[in-house]
Design a protein around this nucleic acid. Structure first.
Lengths: 343, 343
DNA sequence: AAGACGAAAGTTACCCGTAACGCAAGTTTT
DNA sequence: AAAACTTGCGTTACGGGTAACTTTCGTCTT
């Protein structure tokens, strides 16, 4: 068989044009609906498009014009943490509605993985990039600067972003929680979270928390940063470790609600009353909090909206609409009932 | 400024070559390391690559050769359901480790959205596609058949797949749970899940469940399919609705563990004992189950491994390694303690 | 020293669309 | 009726790489 050596034997525009008895250019015009052809010609071309099952090759389109692709690279640390899967969902829904595609990158909280991913994704001529966090490797920063594509740094609000930024001030949110717990009379605080090689938002949050607690006369007795993902079981065994090392803590602040829930289960199983014997505070206000018997003390962050906002900023930039380079999406503290009531 | 009108003013291979004083072809050879150049030339070229910050344009490479890209399109219903975010994580990690990129598509459980997404992604010449579910629109099926790229249908095991398939038999898993609950003496069963316009795996599971229950002499008194996402709160209010409509059910089977947990919280809040007053069974064995005081009756499915397996099949096909077209990843029932003990 | 050979590098054509321009009919203007 | 447009379509060139082929040049053989 002397097939066309055409890759993956897909039908090209030339073949459609030949079959319809017109030039490639005319067929192109018809498909783009930009006018300059008769109704008769249009019908002829479209007939062949259907008959041959023609699918345009967008690679060629991007390549041809001075256009960029419709890809948007989105780098997220991991999907095990519900916080990020919600952000990703917000981003992809919004981008998808405007004809863009998400190219996913899971950076596993390492700058090296992020750098590799950036290099690869940039080679695909994306329309833009959305990155989690404000910290990038020096080489990555160079690449991003010279890439000439819109970039949104999300999650950790960056007042002097590479290009654009949307998120919250994590220091402030940690600080708010610290002051709140101090105000409720706690003085020997514990923290359970996860740690990674790189500085990240959770670390910043912890800094804010410590500052506030110390300012309020208390002390963060024990900080536990586990090398694991921030989920239920980590919170559970982290609490066990923390209480073993510092049995006198009177309240624990967790990296997120999933971990806090794991901790809640641990202390309950041990027969401790919440908030009677110990206070529990989470972060993020994740869906699970909506069905617990006690309202989990937490900090609400609109994850889905954060993702959408990031996508909106990207889209605005791509269509040259004016918009602010920085957007604080805000948070608010949820007092809840897993800490001591107001005095 | 008379800049090169080069899109996004990125450096091209020709510019590197010119700067190095060699031909484009030689520079190309150096970059691909395929030999046919001297060490001196290699050094010259690489020096310019660094100096100019050259990033290859992979679009052009794919376009040029008869190669396909390194993109793999991955369609997932939604990310709110932890089940799918785990599968996605498994896929992306494995693909990423082998130099491929995930192009995400959230289909929101509709075939129309899936079809649109397929059309778009195919136009980018992906290396392959991974789709959730065995049901696709007729037009989508045509497109997929003639696309000539590897396709893995995941989640719902399909013994006559378009190309390849990996997942579990949902009918069987529902059946196993039905028989299990019937065996524990339950006769008036309820089901709480979500529904969508299209047939899906959860529906198949429910079918299997009903069949087994009826075979065991019981009856599925009430099935509730909410138009919502399958998460905690849906399980919570779904249970309220179900118990209002059918107060005499003696056990409830949920679409997944998150919903089951929501239900568990609802019945507990209402003062009902589990399993004393009512039995609760989930599905999926999600991370949250690991920290609950009672072991949730559920069905374990290795979500992460399922994703990895899908990626492995894709990679094997792409490198022409032999492998089975169908892979049953298996499940196993977790008896747990939220249903009546064995008699 | 002529011929054979291999290594290193250059040339040409092509992938699939689109921009820019050209040109031949038909239509309107003056 | 000639000039000036308009409409509909074709031609050419191009983008950034790579396959396939060709050329150049130094080295080894005999």
């Amino acid at each position: 068989m002397s097939e066309k050596s055409n890759k993956s034997n897909r039908v090209s525009l030339s073949e459609v044009a030949r079959a319809a008895g017109v030039s490639k250019m005319t067929a192109s015009r018809v498909l783009r609906g930009e006018g300059g052809y008769s109704e008769k010609t249009r019908a002829l071309v479209m007939e062949q498009v259907d008959a041959l099952g023609y699918l345009p090759n967008r690679l060629a389109t991007v390549f041809a014009g001075d256009k960029t692709s419709t890809f948007v690279g989105v780098a997220i640390p991991d999907l095990g943490n519900e916080v990020f899967s919600q952000v990703l969902e917000g981003i992809d829904r919004k981008l998808g509605a405007f004809g863009h595609q998400t190219v996913l990158g899971l950076t596993q909280h390492t700058l090296a993985a992020e750098e590799d991913w950036i290099k690869t994704v940039l080679s695909w001529q994306p329309a833009g990039l959305i990155l989690t966090g404000r910290y990038h490797s020096p080489r990555a920063t160079d690449l991003l600067r010279s890439a000439g594509v819109p970039i949104v740094e999300i999650w950790d609000l960056n007042s002097s972003p590479l290009d654009m930024s949307v998120g919250i001030n994590h220091f402030d949110s940690g600080f708010a929680m610290g002051r709140f717990l101090a105000g409720r009379g706690y003085t020997r605080l514990g923290y359970v979270g996860t740690s990674h090689d790189t500085a990240n938002a959770a670390t910043t949050r912890l800094d804010g928390f410590c500052r506030a607690v110390e300012g309020g006369g208390g002390r963060v007795t024990k900080q536990l940063c586990l090398h694991d993902t921030a989920t239920y079981y980590t919170g559970h065994y982290g609490t066990e470790q923390l209480l073993a090392a510092a049995p006198d803590v009177d309240a624990i602040f967790y990296q997120n609600d999933a971990m806090a829930f794991g901790g809640l289960q641990y202390v309950s199983a041990r027969g401790m009353a919440v908030p009677g014997d110990i206070g529990i505070a989470g972060w993020g206000d994740l869906p699970i909090a909506s069905v617990l018997p006690k309202r989990l003390t937490s900090c609400h962050v609109p994850h889905l909206r954060l993702g959408q906002a990031a996508a909106e900023m990207m889209l605005a930039r791509l269509s040259n609409e004016p918009m602010a380079a920085c957007r604080d999406i805000g948070f608010h503290l949820i007092p809840g009932t897993t800490v001591a009531p107001e005095r």
